[in-house]
Structure formats: C-alpha cells, structure tokens
Design a protein around this nucleic acid. Structure first.
Lengths: 131, 131
DNA sequence: TGGCGGAATAGACTATGTCTAAAACACGAC
DNA sequence: GTCGTGTTTTAGACATAGTCTATTCCGCCA
C-alpha cells in the first residue's frame, strides 16, 4: 500500500516523521495506543518526539485515515479500520478484535425517543477461544 | 434507601467515609468519575482523602454495588445501575444516558466462532433531542 | 542569501489512577 | 483501663496519558 499517496490524497503534507507514524499505524492489525506507536516508531527513527507522534495520529484521525476507539481504561486506541464495525475485548489479555459489521444485527435503536443516534457499535467482552 | 444495610449485606465494613462515598455515588443518576465523587463528598466531609474515595469505589465495584463503564476518553465512570443495559453518549455534552436492555435487540453474537462472549452492550453516540 | 511559514522538538503542565509508609482507629484479651 | 493486632485512612509520591508552549529546524521562494 502506498501510504505516501494515501496521505497526499487526504490532504496531509508528508514528512519523514509523519510517514513513519502512518506506515506503522496503518499496517498494524492490532489496536495501538499513542505511546505504543511512539515506542515502535522510535525503533526505526529514534529522534521522533512524542508530541509529533500525538500530533500525527490526531491529524490522521481528522483526515479520516484512522479512528479512535474507547475500549480500554485510561487510554484511547487507534483503529486503522475506519468503516463501521463492532469490537470484542478479551478480558484476560486486553486484546481487541474487530467484528465485522454484518456479523451482528442490532434493532430498536432507531425507535429510541429523544435520541438522535449518529453511530453505534456493539462491544463484546469475554475470552478468545483457541479456535 | 438504607445504604448502611446495603453495604453490610454485601460484606463491606461500614465506616463514615465509605458511607459518605456510597451514599453519593449510589444516589447519583449521572455517571460520575472518581475525582468528581471526591469533589462532591469533600463538600460534606472535607477531610476525606482521594485515596479513600478511590479505594471505596473499587471496593463497591468488587462487591457488586457498582459497575465501571468505559465510555469517555481518559477516565472510567461509575454506574450504580448494575444490571445489563446499553448506553447513549451525547457527543456534544458528553452526557451519558442509560438505555434499557429491552429497548434494543442484538442478534448474531452467539454465533461468533472463536469468541466466548460473557457480556455485551450497545454504545450509541449522537445528540440528545429536546423532546 | 535572507526571510517566511509550517513542522518538529524538548520539556512543562494537567489529569487520572495506583502505591507506600505512617498515623489513626476498632476491638478483643487480659 | 491498657495493650496488641487488624483494618482503614491519610498525605504524598509515583506512573501514565495527553495537551500545550516556546524554541528550533527545515523547505521553499524571492
């Protein structure tokens, strides 16, 4: 995937630091926290500052390349899967799994009086099974 | 409601501090953060320490009188409504509303291969209407 | 070469939450 | 009553997440 062009097409001025962050976070299949991204990007590019990582992640969110999800205590995680979907959280490991939108059906949300629902998702918690 | 007996029945040694915390958080219809509880309890009982409020809230959770919910960035909120239900978050005000379990139906979660789902809820985001 | 504007940097700052060591307290044995 | 043991409370240190600010850096254009 050509992250450089992806960035340009979304109106993001590419810089080496931004590219390093974007490449890491967009290719990660896990749901990373900002500091975890910083940790990893620094391995390739040890001079990158924490502020730049935070700024870049927030920029990627604003430009629609990334979404934030509130699934863990105390921290936001970044999800490169930007289309609507659900989440499963393993209560032991903390690991987060994407659940395809069509795997679960929700009904009744449209009939709620007094609430203008713009988006929703199901959050499931439990244990991942061997298979 | 007799919070004192409620605590005793749940195996919590009552103390003045614990009682003050429990009375506040159990009667609140809003979803409070720990520091918000501290703030309020201190108005009645100015010597209570932050650690005690945190300890008490965690104890109430452990004993099943309270639940934590992960709905806002950066902080946990405490919910005195311990039975299963869903949540609506107003994206402007940040206010959280409980949605009764029966108002929304979810299907398909039992058929997920490889996931042992212990609990789930729907999180809705949007705007509360005047109504 | 000089200047301009955006980006990156270090570090300060705030907030949430946990932990630790010491003091306070409750309660039973004597 | 006094002592000793347990548990609770307390203040403050610590850890982590996240934002902000002031300065430096860098690319680009005249």
């Amino acid at each position: 995937m050509d992250v450089l062009n992806l960035m340009r097409r979304h109106g993001i001025q590419p810089t080496p630091q931004r590219l390093a962050v974007a490449e890491h976070v967009l290719s990660a299949r896990a749901h990373l926290t900002a500091d975890r991204v910083w940790e990893r990007v620094r391995r390739k590019c040890p001079t990158v500052s924490r502020a730049t990582v935070y700024n870049t992640l927030n920029l990627l969110v604003k430009k629609g390349l990334l979404r934030t999800q509130i699934l863990k205590e105390g921290t936001v995680v970044f999800d490169s899967h930007v289309e609507a979907h659900h989440h499963f959280v393993d209560v032991q490991t903390g690991r987060i799994y994407d659940i395809p939108w069509n795997a679960i059906r929700v009904s009744g949300h449209a009939a709620l009086r007094g609430f203008d629902v713009r988006e929703y998702q199901v959050i499931l918690r439990g244990r991942r099974r061997a298979k």
